[in-house]
């Protein structure tokens, strides 16, 4: 199990995007439920608690992914096994992509109201 968590294991190839997917499902599902249960007044436009929550979740997920990306680079540098170095680097790239993807997908919260 410890082996799977090592940042040079190929399972890490899917780690970044798994976090991204969970975050994505969470904001999309959360948004739908929030709009069904307690839709904010359209007058408030994008200045709502929902936008704030989604925005914070976005920043949090992005920070986590950036951190993991950096950690994967370090892990790849530390190891001497070619295979581990290889998977560490590729994973780092995908973590980085996921971080960017998180920011990119979450960005519209600053100009759109949540439930219209």
């Amino acid at each position: 199990m410890k082996h799977l968590l090592s940042l040079t294991h190929p399972i890490q190839l899917v780690g970044g995007l798994t976090i991204w997917s969970i975050w994505f499902v969470a904001i999309y599902g959360g948004l739908s439920v929030a709009c069904a249960v307690a839709p904010p007044d359209p007058l408030r436009d994008m200045w709502t608690g929902i936008n704030l929550a989604v925005g914070l979740a976005t920043l949090g997920a992005m920070a986590l992914l950036l951190l993991l990306s950096w950690a994967a680079v370090l892990a790849a540098r530390r190891t001497s096994v070619r295979r581990e170095c290889y998977f560490g680097n590729v994973s780092a790239g995908i973590y980085l992509f996921s971080a960017g993807a998180t920011l990119f997908v979450g960005y519209p919260v600053i100009f759109l109201p949540p439930c219209l």
């Binding site: 359209p42 007058l43 990119f104 519209p108 100009f111 759109l112 109201p113 219209l116």
Partner: peptide, 23 residues
């Protein structure tokens, strides 16, 4: 692609706002 889609998202996506039934 990053530059193009960022440009698209920043400049073009907000045009959809005009079709919202905002007050």
């Amino acid at each position: 692609p990053v530059v193009s889609i960022v440009a698209l998202l920043v400049f073009a996506a907000p045009t959809g706002r005009g079709m919202l039934p905002l007050p």
